[in-house]
Simulated scan of single mutants.
Amino acid sequence: MNDRPNPGWFGRNWKWFVPTGCLTVLLLGALLLFGLIGLGIKGVSGLMSGSEPVRHAMQLAQANPEVKAAFGEPLETGLGFQGSLTTDNDSGAADLSLPVTGPKGSGRIYIKGSREADRWTYRLIEVAIDGSERRIDLLGPDAKPAAPLETAPEDGKDEGEAPAEESAAA
């Protein structure tokens, strides 16, 4: 009669199992790769959003009445930072474009500045509104081209405040 043994499960089903198994492995690999890329983008955006130029620009934007009127509140940064931010000890440079959104609309904040002696100086901080040619200058119309970041001095005095000896002599 028939001397050949009956084939096992794999012997009967290999024609559909091999392609399906390979496709499954490829899909799982692609999902893992996209997940890692997504985490990398999220991580870089998180690092950028914590930087001094981005925090300063967001503070200016959130306090500006024109920006509030155009975007509403709350104003938030999105993913998709573009540009470069470099720091080396107490110097650096920023040339950034970051997306911002609010309940009324979206746009981008453009930041150009440099850092010397651990102090940021900005040449440009402005908001571009999507779907409009309008730009809002966050440094103000009377701001100098290189307006320094206003921070509280470490000794607790205002920068414009003269010491008692100097003001008495003047």
Rank of each mutant, 00 (worst) to 15 (best):
M1H: 03
D3S: 11
D3H: 11
N6I: 14
N6K: 12
P7K: 04
G8I: 12
G8Y: 09
G8H: 06
F10M: 06
N13V: 08
N13F: 13
N13Y: 14
W14I: 04
W16V: 14
W16A: 13
F17Y: 06
V18Q: 07
T20K: 07
C22E: 03
L23F: 13
T24Q: 13
T24R: 11
L28F: 08
L32H: 05
G35I: 02
K42W: 04
S45T: 05
G46R: 02
S49F: 15
G50H: 10
S51A: 07
E52N: 08
P53K: 04
V54G: 01
V54R: 00
H56I: 09
L60C: 06
A61N: 11
Q62C: 09
V67F: 03
L75E: 07
E76N: 12
G78V: 00
F81W: 05
Q82D: 10
S84Q: 14
T86G: 15
T87N: 06
N89F: 15
D90W: 15
S91W: 04
G92R: 14
D95G: 06
L96V: 10
S97T: 14
P99F: 06
V100S: 07
V100L: 08
T101H: 11
T101D: 09
K104W: 00
G105F: 01
R108F: 00
I109K: 02
K112Q: 10
K112P: 01
E116K: 12
E116V: 11
A117H: 09
R119N: 11
W120E: 01
R123Q: 09
L124S: 11
E126R: 13
V127L: 09
I129K: 01
D130R: 09
S132L: 05
R135E: 01
D137K: 11
L138A: 05
L139F: 00
K144W: 08
A146N: 09
A147Q: 03
L149E: 10
L149G: 04
P153A: 03
G156E: 07
G160Y: 02
G160T: 05
A164W: 12
E165F: 14
S167E: 15
S167H: 15
